[in-house]
């Protein structure tokens, strides 16, 4: 039974071309002086040189990175603690933790940012600190991804058996969780953190609504640049996309390694 094998290839190729055109065009655009006809003219790297000598741009890169670290680390810790307590001591509460973790999937950027803003903006306490609001919002936005990553990791390593085995060998539940289970789900934690990095890197809504222009990240920098200089902006664009791609590539690579390791199980 021979089928027409070309059709699926063509479909995949077409979709890929459609998806890659805007990227390819922007990259070429950033490398040439002029592109008003069919072909670009005047190859140059000026944009990139200018960018990497611009203190504000470098600062925005630094901010983007810094804004990832705190919320992701905090979210990992609070989710691990919550899952430790619920899975081992109070399995009945697990359902509620799950619901709380999944709600941010449906309330996306705009609603979350405006609701946090309107609640705390007039507050006389430390809660009105804009940066704190932003960090809190980031924690909530990445909550579903971190939660699912950790939860799936726990399932994949058969956590209950691991903990019981460690207990039978004289370890406490706390020791078993943090010294036996956590090291084994490290790759799952790293993968979900990278996904979270991708989300925070790509964020514009939350930072604009919550922090305004007081702490511009790479997205805001791009937005401001594209208002007055589109070739310069295209270079910023390329750098942003490059970072995002590297992150995605890392995720894919780690995921592949992880599944391969699990499938490697030697046959008798």
């Amino acid at each position: 039974m021979k089928e027409k094998r070309a059709a699926p290839l063509a479909v995949m190729l077409l979709v890929m071309i459609y998806l890659l055109i805007p990227l390819a065009v922007s990259i070429v655009y950033s490398l040439f002086r002029k592109w008003t006809g069919v072909l670009p003219e005047g190859f140059r790297l000026d944009n990139y040189i200018a960018l990497f000598t611009d203190g504000e741009f470098l600062a925005s890169v630094g901010r983007s990175i810094a804004m990832c670290i705190v919320p992701i680390a905090a979210t990992i810790v609070i989710v691990l603690l919550a899952l430790f307590v619920t899975t081992i001591y109070f399995p009945k509460l697990e359902k509620y933790v799950q619901i709380i973790c999944m709600i941010p999937y449906t309330i996306q950027g705009v609603i979350l940012s405006v609701s946090i803003l309107s609640l705390y903006v007039g507050s006389p306490t430390f809660l009105s600190n804009r940066l704190l609001m932003l960090m809190g919002a980031y924690c909530v936005v990445i909550l579903p991804y971190i939660y699912q990553g950790i939860r799936n990791g726990m399932r994949a390593v058969h956590m209950p058996t691991l903990i019981e085995a460690a207990e039978m060998l004289g370890a406490s539940k706390l020791y078993a969780f943090f010294r036996v289970v956590v090291p084994n789900i490290l790759s799952a934690i790293i993968i979900s953190s990278l996904l979270a990095v991708g989300i925070i890197f790509g964020d514009y809504v939350l930072i604009r609504n919550l922090a305004g222009t007081s702490a511009p990240n790479m997205q805001i920098y791009l937005y401001q640049t594209m208002k007055h200089d589109s070739t310069m902006a295209s270079a910023v664009f390329v750098i942003i996309m490059l970072t995002t791609f590297i992150i995605t590539l890392l995720v894919l690579l780690l995921q592949n390694k992880d599944t391969k390791r699990r499938q490697q199980q030697v046959k008798e």
Binding site: L20, S230, M241, L249
Partner: peptide, 17 residues
């Protein structure tokens, strides 16, 4: 996977160009 993160401001910019 790569373009799944291609959204927001960069996407708007690419379409402007």
């Amino acid at each position: 996977n790569m373009v799944s993160n291609f959204a927001g401001i960069p996407l708007a910019f690419a379409y402007m160009i």
